[in-house]
Amino acid sequence: MSRLPLLLLSLSPLLGCVNSRTQWVEVTVTTELIAPEGLSAPVYGEWNHTWSGEGELRVPLLPFEDFAADGPGVVSTTLLVPLDGVEGLTLYAWMDLDGDGLHCAPGVTDEPAGLGEALPFPATEADVTLSLEAPCLGAEALWDGG
């Protein structure tokens, strides 16, 4: 066997011009935010990778981008989501009833939150419905195992 291919193969990393190559999907998510009757206030939260990591480092809900909406209803968001080493797309959000920018600051007990998975994913269009009904719980407390 000629040694030339082997030599070229061993040198190829040095000759390679690309430092990194990553895969992404640009997804437009239609989100329906449902609040308890009579409640309306700005909604904040985060987009999460539903799963990330491997082995002992595999973990649900890794936030990667903030979410904001003026209030309950339907909102459309376009996200650039990485696909390497992560799975799924899940939205966590909460309603800022007192307008302090904090989710249930000490003494506040009524700001509702919700968690929902956007489907299908990966895809360029997805939908998620979020019921904001759990007061003062973080995304981790709403996670039921997927």
Binding site: L61, C104, P106, C136, L137, G138, A139, E140, A141
Partner: peptide
């Protein structure tokens, strides 16, 4: 660990 300090669980 991504857990609220006031998490009631």
């Amino acid at each position: 660990q991504h857990v609220r300090l006031d998490d009631p669980r």
